[in-house]
Design a protein around this nucleic acid. Structure first.
Lengths: 123, 123
DNA sequence: CTGGATCCTTTCAGATACTG
DNA sequence: CAGTATCTGAAAGGATCCAG
């Protein structure tokens, strides 16, 4: 039996918990980057641009734990590690890309709104 | 002149910046709740369930600043304050709901993956 | 090349108390 | 009812050094 998603109490807390896991910028950016195909650690680091190695490795670990990505190690010297989306991760791509694209489309609008808001409140 | 969204460097930093603004659970939960129509402060607080009044008021302020919601005050006693989505906010609803629904649909899958992962790593 | 371990600073977020 | 102010602990995040 499935849990009741429409329950007014536990359902909301559940959404809250799950969004707490996936709704952060590093997670969304990584899933987005891996949409193009498997990538290695430093390729991800370079393509995302402003992520520290610590945040990248810790976020990747969490994503692997949640079954969203797979970590493939080829034990050569130097070792090669490739990250790719699982079926679950690929299923996640559509909503993630939709949100990211929305953000890009409306970036200027939001910036303008911020400027007006800050102006009104003589910041 | 518009910024170049397709530039490989600044474009990525721009996505990163915008996702840093909107990709957090309180923002998504509030936008989701306001999808049903305008709501008042304590109604939001009750419906979201586990949000503190501090986080609610500060997140609402940020959302108003970014032009995603509107704050309407009716100066009665006691005062009535109603929050509602702007056109921008309504446009944001689709991607937000898509991500939230994905999270709910796959909550159990992610939980199971976590359990297996933690088991393998004898946590 | 792919990280782990550590240190340090900043930000987030809850609890509590108070105001118009 | 709808918040603000303050205090405090937890978590995020960067910098640096080190290792397989």
């Amino acid at each position: 039996m499935q849990p009741d998603y429409h329950d007014e109490t536990s359902g909301c807390l559940r959404v809250s918990e799950m969004l707490g896991r996936i709704a952060n910028k590093w997670t969304l950016l990584i899933v987005r980057e891996l949409g193009d195909g498997p990538k290695r650690f430093n390729a991800l680091r370079r393509d995302i641009g402003d992520i520290s190695q610590k945040m990248l490795s810790s976020t990747l670990k969490t994503l692997e734990r949640d079954g969203i990505i797979i970590r493939d190690v080829t034990p050569t010297t130097p070792p090669q590690v490739e990250y790719s989306l699982t079926p679950l991760g690929r299923d996640m791509q559509a909503p993630v890309n939709a949100l990211a694209e929305w953000a890009m489309r409306n970036a200027d609008t939001m910036d303008a709104s911020r400027n007006r808001f800050d102006m009104r409140n003589h910041a």
